[in-house]
Amino acid sequence: MELEIKNISVSLSNKEILKSINLVVKDGEFISLLGASGCGKSTLLKTIAGIIKQREGSILLGGKVLDKVPPYKRKTVIVFQDFRLFPHMTIAENISFPLKMLGVNKSEYRKRAIELLKKVKLEGYEDRHVDEISGGQKQRIALARALAADPVVLLLDEPFSSLDVNLRKDMRELVQDLQKELKITTILVTHDQEEALTMSDRIAFMHNGEIQQYDSPENIFKNPINTIVADYFAEGTYVSGHIKDKRFISDFFSINANKDNGSYKCLIRPSALKISKTRDSQFKVVAKVYQGDNYLIKIHNTDGNLKLESILVDPVDIEVGDKVSIELDKDKLIFIPE
């Protein structure tokens, strides 16, 4: 069902955490709330679920106002970062808890629990205890339990951040497969930009209790509306200048840019810069950092007022101290209006 967040403001102990948030999540869509810790993304999640009450605004689900619906009747189910499995119940009892609350009879909810365990690829675990299983398995149980509650909106609160890197990838795939199969409207809260970019249909970027930008992963990466959003995805060097007649002009360079006239900052991310060794150039390599798949090359101009970074896949023969020529990939440059 479509979820609409209208003008939501939240204050906790007299501090404003969310400031007039507006957001629409389409039926079956998978969106991410991305932002640094403390930006209010988890608070927004809990407000949607009704655990936190908003000071202003409304939440609509399928066009119906949810504000007076208590949390346990909303069917907006959260999977928390710390899983919150009930320690005094077996795995099957954990998963069937929502069904038991609905008054489903015992043999039926046990059957459903076993079905769901199969879905999260943990067959045969039903009678184990919560403290006998690993973190990744707990995550799967928490997910199965959330699905048992038949969620209209699935809310995932940093669900992968406590898992090992290797496990994370498997879990992301599992979540995505299940989401596509069941077509549940899903909101993922994360601080990991890669997670947001790879998993979501759209990303809402939050900062200081406000949504800065809400767009598709590609658009938000390529056309961030301000430096906060831009920096969060990939840092680089900013060069100030202005655009006139579709051309960006700065102290250092000028390049074609398909934007309206005005003052702009041009963000040069490492991926937008190509370098090659040359005899005579005003750019010099000051550092070469091995990063596993590639090398990060840091270069300065002779005046020392322009510091750039580039990525080299091949170690080639560029070393610290070498002079290099640079080439900008105009499609990867980002222009942010000032």
């Binding site: 809990k46 679920a49 009704g50 655990i51 208590p70 949390p71 346990y72 009747k73 909303r74 069917k75 907006t76 189910v77 959260i78 928390f80 710390d82 919150r84 009930f86 320690p87 005094h88 808890f97 929502p98 038991k100 609350m101 609905l102 339990r145 959330a146 048992a148 509650a149 809310l155």
Partner: peptide, 25 residues
């Protein structure tokens, strides 16, 4: 209060959340 919150969003009323989750703990 975290466990009870988890129970709420899974569909348990406050009283049932207390009875089935907090009380045993």
């Amino acid at each position: 209060v975290d466990m009870e919150h988890q129970a709420y969003v899974l569909g348990a009323s406050p009283w049932k959340s207390f009875l089935y989750v907090s009380f045993p703990l």
